[in-house]
């Protein structure tokens, strides 16, 4: 489904972003009657076939060089993407993830702190880290909702609330999507800078993955500040968010030198990355809230229960105890997760 020709030509397309790709001239001796041998549409389309991201382009006198594109065959593929691919990918990824999470909840239930809450807490995230997380998170929710609206709104919402209201809402959503994106992009950048050091892969990550973090009861693998699951989430967010930002800004700023095929590609990449990331983030939200006892306060208050920390991040706790013992403090009895 995803393997539309757009993807087959991902790299050539990026290279071929220059406009005015000269049409392949028909081979004609100059003395021949030019009327009889006039260039035809079919001829030009056939010539384009080896590289379907090209357009039949010619010369126009107006400064809008894109107007020189007479026929762009990739419009058909974009249409297929927009009406089918993204819809199906989204319809599989997001409800699928929700179903998976529900299934997981049914099987595993809430992951409890096995040792029970202790009286001690350990500082997990400083204020600025939490600020960045929430900035990224809230903007992602706004972007996700307004983005999903463009994919599913027409099918799900429009019949319910009517064209006028839906259009007004979508228009607003589009403005929100455009402007909020800057906060999101900034957040992604800061998160990368803050946490990349702790998210570099380590050998023990393999064990963590093999044991699936102990969540299905194969015992608790050790982890540093971030376990392999969190690292995967980090990289998904950074790469996914980064991709979204780059493709989004291409869509937004529309560099003149970009061919339509490049713009289409940006749109496709943006959309698909978007729905997939939404699905991934759903898992993140699940595990940070309903799915695991004691996890939410890491971002809520910045501190976590020491027992929770020991269970999930034993290596890290040891390091903190060694380097910054002050971060571990006897606090009040832990409150249940919000």
């Amino acid at each position: 489904m995803i393997a539309t020709p757009l993807f087959r030509h991902l790299f050539p397309a990026l290279l071929a972003m220059l406009l005015c790709v000269a049409p392949v001239a028909a081979q004609q001796p100059s003395a021949v009657n030019p009327t009889a041998s006039s260039v035809t549409e079919k001829q030009l389309l056939d010539a384009l076939k080896p590289n379907s991201t090209d357009t039949i382009a010619g010369r126009v006198s107006i400064p809008d060089v894109r107007a020189g594109n007479l026929i762009q065959p990739t419009g058909v593929e974009f249409r297929a993407y927009q009406t089918t691919t993204i819809f199906q990918v989204g319809a599989i990824a997001i409800p699928g993830m929700l179903a998976l999470l529900a299934l997981f909840y049914l099987i595993r239930g809430r992951v409890r702190i096995q040792g029970g809450p202790s009286a001690q807490t350990i500082v997990r995230f400083a204020w600025f880290s939490r600020f960045v997380h929430w900035m990224t998170a809230t903007s992602f929710i706004a972007l996700g909702l307004s983005g999903l609206n463009l994919v599913f709104g027409k099918t799900l919402l429009l019949p319910v609330i009517g064209a006028s209201a839906f259009s007004a809402m979508s228009q607003l959503g589009k403005f929100v999507h455009d402007y909020v994106s800057f906060a999101f992009a900034l957040g992604i950048f800061l998160m990368f800078v803050m946490w990349v050091k702790d998210n570099l892969p380590a050998l023990r990550d393999i064990r963590w993955i093999v044991q699936f973090g102990g969540m299905l009861g194969f015992g608790h693998p050790t982890a540093d500040r971030f376990n392999a699951g969190q690292k995967l989430m980090f990289w998904a967010t950074i790469l996914g968010g980064g991709t979204l930002a780059v493709s989004g800004y291409i869509m937004m700023f529309r560099p003149v030198s970009f061919a339509i095929s490049a713009m289409q590609l940006a749109t496709v990449v943006h959309g698909l990355t978007g729905v997939v990331l939404v699905a991934i983030i759903l898992a993140h939200i699940y595990i940070g809230t309903v799915g695991m006892e004691g996890a939410f306060r890491a971002m809520g208050r910045g501190t976590v229960d020491l027992n929770w920390a020991k269970e999930h991040h034993s290596v890290w706790v040891e390091k903190v105890a060694r380097k910054r013992p002050k971060d571990i403090s006897g606090g009040p009895a832990p409150a249940p997760a919000e």
Partner: peptide, 13 residues
């Protein structure tokens, strides 16, 4: 708009 294909060459359209 009017687009000229094969500008300046035989077969220009």
């Amino acid at each position: 708009r009017v687009v000229t294909i094969n500008d300046g060459k035989p077969g220009e359209r």
